[in-house]
């Protein structure tokens, strides 16, 4: 150990401010980067899931619309026959 006491460790001679500034900034940057990076696969999967859902809804809607048109057509057809 190079320091006799904890306060000496904090003041680091007279350059404590600069040393702790360096270590502090590094910690903040790496924490932010770490959290952001660790979430990446999840974020991307969520995006893909949203897109898949939207596509499914669109498909269902189009199918419904198509079915509705068919029904209308059949009803008018039968009307003409009568």
């Amino acid at each position: 150990m190079t320091f006799e006491s904890f306060s000496e460790f904090l003041t680091m001679g007279k350059h404590g401010f600069y040393i702790w500034l360096s270590y502090g900034c590094t910690l903040v940057i790496l924490l932010a980067l770490g959290i952001n990076s660790m979430r990446q696969p999840k974020v991307q999967l969520e995006k893909i899931r949203q897109r898949l859902k939207r596509e499914q809804q669109l498909k269902a809607y189009q199918q419904k619309k198509a079915e509705g048109q068919n029904q209308q057509q059949t009803s008018t057809d039968s009307g003409e026959v009568v």
Partner: peptide, 16 residues
């Protein structure tokens, strides 16, 4: 480690 995580995310996004 962080590059691997981001790489995974990128692979997912590009092969969606």
């Amino acid at each position: 480690s962080l590059i691997c995580k981001r790489f995974q995310g990128q692979v997912l996004a590009r092969n969606s």
